[in-house]
Amino acid sequence: MNVVVLVKYVPDPQGTPELDDAFLVVREGTEGALDPGDEYAVEAGLRLVETHGGEVTLLTMGPETASAALRKGLSMGAHAGVHVVDPALRGSDALATARVLAAAVRRRPFDLVLAGVESTDGSTGTVPMTVAQLLELPSATFARALSVEDGVLRIERPTDLGFDVVEAPLPALATVTGSAPEPRYPTLKGIMQAKQKPVERLALADLGLSAEALAPTQRVVGLTRAQERAAGEVIQAGEDTAKRIVDLLAEAKVL
């Protein structure tokens, strides 16, 4: 079975992102990485092909530096990468991103598309569903467990009071949460092998898309810094800690 995983390159998840003059997140020249959330989708894809055979192809849209995200996933064990890179894509919004990803997925046969639930930097949390609708695929979202049997995808989806089991016939799309099995670490061998694995580069023209059709539809027109909540008192735990906390509860009339 052939699995395509949508992986995003994000600025250092630990660092503080910066905005440029046009209020776009600075992606060039910053340390970045494969979105930690997407590693769960890569892991889920690898497990499925380990059980059923086939290949995992990673697909990313992003600047030159985004190839680092592909390299990480390839060193985890994915088989090939596709990198959509085009200057016209800078500042793409959710719809443009989904259109590009859908067009790139369509280029070859696949059984399953996997994605993270939301990106660390954009956190729109809807791009995969838009891709699914553009490809007219059923989608099973927010999976913490996935399996495939007889051409049917089966997932567990957490809910307010427990979880649901959802099934979708393949080909399908699923999004994978951080409650799914932990992503593996790349081995040294994996890192070495990653360098030999094929990565296809595509520009907009290769996808039959025009820059005009993908023009951004959102503009940041203003920015306000939030008022910091004033810090209160910090005390060392000691004799009267419990008394202090319970006094506060009494003051708040919740006791």
Binding site: D93, M129, T130, A132, S139
Partner: peptide, 24 residues
């Protein structure tokens, strides 16, 4: 809303209407 159920609907609606979507 930004609930999981609402996100499923909104993401698909965007593909059908071709309009902009803002989350959060």
């Amino acid at each position: 809303s930004t609930s999981h159920d609402a996100r499923d609907v909104a993401g698909r609606l965007q593909a059908l209407t071709g309009s902009t979507l803002m989350s959060n």
